[in-house]
């Protein structure tokens, strides 16, 4: 698996995966996303209101997969509004902050929210303990999180968006697992079904159309 280069212009993909990043406010979702999609980390980023997204194209098994990753506001009162964005997702990363126990404890809530809002039971979920660079302030033991992940059949990685540790790994693992799962099943149809438009996931995305859209929306600053 490798990055296919300038993903900003790359619309020539085989599969489109919609992924969502969820978890409490301030755990570092937006920075994980900017680190992964742009190799960028901003000490002074802005809190996310509503939704944001970024894309990255990766190669798995000779296929180019475009990951479209959605990032949402983490504060509790926003949950009801932003859950509209879970539909069509084939993967999710639930993020907590290893220095903040509460954000870890809330992961089971996030898990519940995901399962009640998704018709797609095949969604692959990863648990991410972020801010790994702050070892001296750690309050969530890695073993505990590992066990929680195992019990709930979640992938698990500890990451640091700041020092760029395991970020790529966490996303890659999620994407490959989704891909592997889909191979074992009848294909991606189960996912496409959940979504009436071309978004979400599936191998039916019209590439020519995407290219045309790209040109007319101009400037290439798309994703």
């Amino acid at each position: 698996m490798s990055d296919t280069g300038d993903n900003q212009y790359n619309y020539d993909y085989d599969l489109l995966y919609k992924l969502v990043l969820i978890g409490d406010s301030g755990v570092g979702k937006s920075n994980l996303l900017s680190r992964y999609s742009n190799n960028d980390f901003q000490i002074n980023s802005k809190s996310t209101i509503g939704v944001e997204f970024a894309t990255k194209a990766v190669k798995v098994d000779g296929k180019i997969i475009k990951a479209q990753i959605w990032d949402t506001a983490g504060q509790e009162r926003y949950r009801a509004i932003t859950k509209a964005y879970y539909r069509g997702a084939v993967g999710a990363l639930i993020v907590y902050d290893i220095t903040n126990t509460k954000t870890y404890e809330n992961c089971s809530d996030w898990l519940n929210i995901l399962s009640t809002n998704l018709e797609n039971n095949d969604i692959v979920i990863g648990l991410i303990g972020n801010k790994k660079d702050l070892q001296h302030q750690r309050s969530v033991p890695i073993e505990e999180a590992q066990e929680f992940a195992r019990n709930n059949q979640l992938l698990f990685t500890e990451t640091s968006a700041l020092s760029n540790e395991n970020v790529e790994k966490a996303f890659t693992e999620l994407i490959t697992t989704i891909y592997e799962n889909s191979k074992h099943q009848t294909g991606m149809e189960t996912v496409t079904k959940n979504n009436s438009s071309s978004i979400g996931a599936g191998n039916t995305v019209s590439l020519t159309k995407s290219n045309k859209e790209k040109k007319s929306s101009s400037s290439g600053q798309c994703c």
Binding site: V51, E52, F53, T55, Q68, Y85, S197, S198, I199, K209, K212, E213, S216, S217, Q221, C222, C223
Partner: peptide
């Protein structure tokens, strides 16, 4: 000319 949420957000 956008057919999905992501394109809307991009515009």
């Amino acid at each position: 000319i956008c057919t999905d949420d992501a394109h809307f957000v991009s515009v």
